[in-house]
Design a protein around this nucleic acid. Structure first.
Length: 964
DNA sequence: GTTATCACG
DNA sequence: GACGTACGTGATAACA
């Protein structure tokens, strides 16, 4: 129950937000149009996009979740286009245009929305919103309160004072007296004088012809104020200006009257009525649900701690029939959707989609026929596990046209499984094998496009049933090609970003954490609503995203680097890699013994027992109790105990940190590798099957998960032992082929550094050569330390070098690091040029590109503050890391066919950024190396002809340790 | 769920 | 002149 509003007078310590409602409306409208105009309608056709954005903006500005938000809040609107100013000057705002057609019906709804939020909604005949804002701001400031006006209208800048600030709701910048002075060149009190002189073409204020803001500010600065200026106009040197000011004095005074806001409007609503209260959930959520804002309804229900009401699409409610089970398409659109793939079409309302549960072969065949007719099909499997190697199919969601989707349940069981696990198959489902037998030919049909979100998952599950899926289009990968760097590419995120719709969270069906159930135990009707929505949303995303590929010139990236990799990775992942569990168990035991010894020693050194694995406790021991030097607390107030800190303490001769480092290394190896890897062995295949994410990184690299096989230890002897457990089947060998220095080679190419290119062509030691050039020492008999430093510089360059970073890495003073960098740039000025050029590109375009055209967006490069340096270094690194990633992708795509053409039976197992791992029959090892090496070294061609050779090193053995 | 740490290229 | 920084990832344990 909402409490009755208690009027609370406003005074010192209070903060009043005054929203320029009319400005907000236009912002909301264009924001919505920008998002995706197609979805800005309620199911009955009422345009609601601006209402939706307006509500979202209000919600965020009210700051209900925060305690530092406003105490008072009001939204002010223009009553009509006429005001007292028209009496003064009939042409006032005469050249304003009519609001857009689809915005006009939203004005009333927006006022309704404001009231639903429980906010005063204020307007007055004869006055503009700005006058009311001026009046309230003046009153509030006089009462000692602070005021923030939410508007981007520069006419309001005259109101700014220490107590009254202006804030642009989109740009989120706060405008105080200093910012006004920066913009107008005068203090806020004199802004009207400047405006009076400069005039305003938007509002049709005449002003002084030939005088703009710059000149006006200069004149006011010189003479103090407008009256003085006009009185002493005769003194002005420039004849033309003098004449204008004398002749147009009346017009200028009139202009000032027009731009000066009225601060004494006889307002009816008092400030006390603006005290901000929590909205009445019933009224607000009711309104939002009526508008059919599903995402906003649930989000706001969450802030209010209330139950979100059901959102029932009007069209459907009016039609009277339930959604599920209806088999005829809604009147909208089927005919309109027959266009070519990716053609621009009008999508029917998402909230009104029809979800059909398919329980008999005939209905499934009807859907299959429809897909054949359309030439495409969106598919999404529901299964019992995220692990494709064990997942059982529970249901299949299909969609052919937006607006309709089907769910074919095949493996649902009774949810009431008791502790004995007794759960029975639910009646009324097609048999899995029957459904797959019918769908199989469709999925393999080369004339039918299969659309999905992360189809690699579905393809792997289907492959276990002997089904192939081709050709495909993957919305996740389309998004990745288009928008890498702009956010994630998961379906829920894409739906919110592009469709303005929040799909049903899986949590609502299966719960989360320990109490989560498997999908087969979800009721069929619930599952259908969820699954059908996913398939339909995916198809809608395809309609929205696919045309952008060509329009934004990233089709080639998608078609040559993303899509063809899907079947290749699916096969690698399905192959898996054999691990020697006994070897890992032996190592684990050895590590455990060693750790126990270290632990005893550590506790003795500390003088008491504690959890060595707790950085917090360790920090207290080292820095509070033992008082060791060099302690630094992080932002959380905890002592830093990272390896770098402990190493420097150990280097000073302290034993405790040295032992902790030893302990930590073993702890890491044991928990992450020797103990965790065996749990990932698949019961059926006896091998470990990682999953490669295609769209996880911003640069085009893959990422390996569950388990991550791209970070198996190699740098230390102890760690390298883990690789002995990655073994080939008897009679086979592990092959490892890796690109030598690929990122530096790409740098030499893109930056066009002749000396580096030549060094690579001649096969020189690139770090030694760098050292020789930078430090002026001969390569022969070089001090290994000097080479190490040059190596660090080379890596630094790839990362967007900074003196701080290099100093940290080499543990040298920052000044020395800077001298190194200066010397380096002195010798290789082209590198600095390249870095500057890359930053400039990123600033101009908002993205950088790899050699193969992959785009990596760099939002954040424009911002000020510490974030920018970050974004700049990422922008420098991205084309280099990304081009290398593209090269190995191209190689991977070609390798299966190259092996097949050479009649070689070896399998590709893993990719580790610049390395590929294979398992091959012993007899084929030499030939396989030859074929793969050739493909890898030529991978850039013919798209790009590198000025430097790519060189691939190869190794082989019974295990990864031997092959590397 | 977030943070600190550490494994890889 | 100060600020805060090497690029890109994922898994684990501790802690809240």
């Amino acid at each position: 129950m909402a409490e009755a509003r208690a009027p609370r007078p406003l005074g010192k310590g209070d903060l009043l937000y005054l929203v320029d409602g009319s400005g907000f409306i236009f912002r909301a409208y264009f924001q919505a149009a920008n998002r995706d105009a197609k979805y800005n309608f309620r199911s009955d056709g009422t345009p609601t996009g601006a209402v939706n954005m307006f509500c979202a903006m209000l919600h965020s500005e009210m700051g209900l979740a925060s305690s530092r938000g406003p105490t008072h809040f009001a939204v002010i609107f223009d009553h009509s286009s006429e005001s007292f100013r028209n009496a003064l000057y009939p042409a006032y705002k005469a050249n304003r245009t009519e609001p857009p057609e689809d915005l006009r019906p939203q004005f009333a709804l927006i006022r309704e929305a404001t009231r639903a939020f429980g906010l005063p909604c204020i307007e007055m005949q004869g006055y503009e919103a700005d006058d009311l804002i001026a009046t309230y701001a003046t009153q509030a400031a006089a009462a000692g309160a602070a005021v923030t006006i939410l508007s981007s209208d520069k006419d309001l800048m005259q109101l700014v004072s220490p107590a009254v600030h202006l804030r642009d709701p989109m740009k989120k910048v706060d405008i105080g007296p200093e910012e006004v002075a920066a913009k107008f060149g005068v203090a806020p009190e004199r802004v009207v004088d400047v405006q009076a002189l400069a005039g305003d073409s938007v509002d049709n204020i005449p002003g002084a012809p030939g005088i703009g803001v710059k000149t006006a500010a200069q004149l006011i600065g010189e003479y103090g104020d407008l009256d003085t200026l006009l009185a002493r106009a005769g003194e002005i040197r420039q004849p033309k200006r003098r004449q204008t000011l004398i002749e147009k004095a009346d017009q200028i005074r009139l202009s000032r009257e027009l731009v000066t806001l009225k601060r004494d409007v006889p307002v009816e609503t008092g400030l006390e009525a603006m005290s901000l209260e929590k909205p009445d959930p019933e009224a607000l959520l009711g309104f939002l649900a009526e508008m059919e804002f599903r995402t906003l309804t649930s989000r706001i229900a969450e802030t209010l701690g209330a139950e979100p009401p059901a959102v029932v699409p009007r069209a459907e409610a009016a039609g009277g029939s339930g959604a599920a089970g209806a088999s005829s398409p809604p009147g909208a659109g089927h005919a309109a959707l027959g266009g070519a793939p990716g053609a621009r079409i009008d999508l029917p309302d998402l909230e009104a989609a029809v979800h059909e549960v398919v329980r008999d072969p005939g209905t499934l065949e009807a859907w299959i026929a429809e897909a054949r007719e359309a030439g495409r099909l969106c598919i999404d499997l529901e299964t019992t596990s995220l692990d494709e190697m064990v997942a059982e199919i529970v249901g299949i969601a299909l969609s052919v046209v937006p607006g309709r989707a089907a769910y074919v349940p095949v493996g649902h069981t009774t949810g009431e499984g008791d502790l004995l696990g007794a759960s029975e198959r639910v009646e009324g489902q097609l048999a899995l094998e029957d459904a797959l037998a019918r769908l199989g030919p469709l999925l393999a049909d080369p004339s039918i496009l299969k659309i999905g979100q992360n189809l690699k998952y579905d393809m792997k599950v289907l492959a276990r049933h002997g089904l192939a899926v081709a050709p495909i289009d993957d919305t996740m990968l389309i998004s990745y090609a288009l928008d890498s760097g702009r956010g994630g590419h998961g379906m829920d995120e894409l739906s919110e970003r592009h469709l303005g719709h929040k799909p049903i969270p899986i949590k609502e069906l299966i719960g989360s954490g320990k109490s989560a159930i498997t999908f087969d135990r979800v009721e069929i009707d619930k599952a259908a609503g969820y699954a059908a929505e996913d398939a339909e949303v995916t198809l809608r995303l395809w309609h929205v995203l696919r045309p952008r590929l060509a329009a934004e010139r990233v089709s080639t990236v998608y078609h040559t680097l993303e899509r063809p990799l899907v079947p290749v990775l699916a096969e690698m992942e399905r192959a898996g890699i054999r691990i020697d569990r006994d070897e890992l168990a032996r190592q684990s035991t050895r590590f455990a013994q060693k750790m126990a010894e270290y632990e005893d020693e550590i506790h003795k050194l500390a003088g008491r027992s504690f959890n060595v694995g707790s950085p917090k406790q360790l920090g207290e021991i080292l820095f509070d109790e033992q008082g060791l030097p060099g302690g630094k607390k992080g932002k959380a107030g905890a002592w830093g105990t990272g390896a770098d800190v402990l190493e420097s303490l150990a280097a000073q001769g302290h034993e405790l940190p040295a032992r902790v480092l030893d302990w930590r290394q073993l702890s890491k190896l044991r928990s992450t590798y020797t103990d965790a890897l065996p749990t990932h062995v698949n019961a059926e295949t006896g091998r470990v099957h990682t999953s490669f994410s295609l769209a996880a990184t911003s640069t085009g690299r893959l990422a390996s998960t569950d388990p991550n096989l791209q970070n198996i230890p190699v740098r230390t002897e102890e760690g390298r032992g883990i690789r002995r457990a990655f073994v080939a089947e008897p009679g086979n060998l592990i092959l490892s082929l890796d690109y030598s220095q690929i990122e530096l080679r790409i740098l030499a190419h893109v930056a066009g550094i002749d000396a580096l290119k030549a060094a690579f062509r001649e096969g020189q030691d690139i770090h030694a050569m760098t050292a020789s050039e930078v430090f002026g020492v001969p390569v022969e008999g070089m001090d290994p330390m000097v080479r190490r430093q040059a190596k660090a510089i080379n890596f630094g360059v790839i990362y967007g070098i900074s003196a701080f970073g290099l100093a940290n890495n080499l543990r040298i003073p920052q000044g020395e690091a800077k001298a190194f960098i200066d010397a380096y740039f002195e010798r290789f000025p082209g590198i600095r040029d390249y870095m500057e050029a890359t930053k400039a590109t990123a600033r101009e375009n908002g993205y950088v590109e790899t050699l193969f055209g992959r785009r990596i967006h760099t939002p954040g490069i424009a911002q000020k503050g510490p974030g920018r340096g970050f974004a700049e270094r990422a922008a420098i690194n991205a084309p280099i890391q990304g081009s290398a990633a593209d090269v190995i992708r191209r190689a991977m795509i070609r390798i299966p066919e190259a092996l097949a053409a050479a009649k070689l039976s070896g399998r590709m197992l893993l990719q580790v950024h610049d390395e590929l791992l294979f398992e091959v029959p012993e007899a084929e090892a030499a030939d396989t190396v030859a074929v793969v090496r050739r493909v890898m070294e030529e991978a850039a061609e013919p798209a790009v002809k590198l000025d430097v050779p790519l060189v691939v090193d190869a190794g082989q053995g019974a295990s990864w340790a031997e092959a590397h």
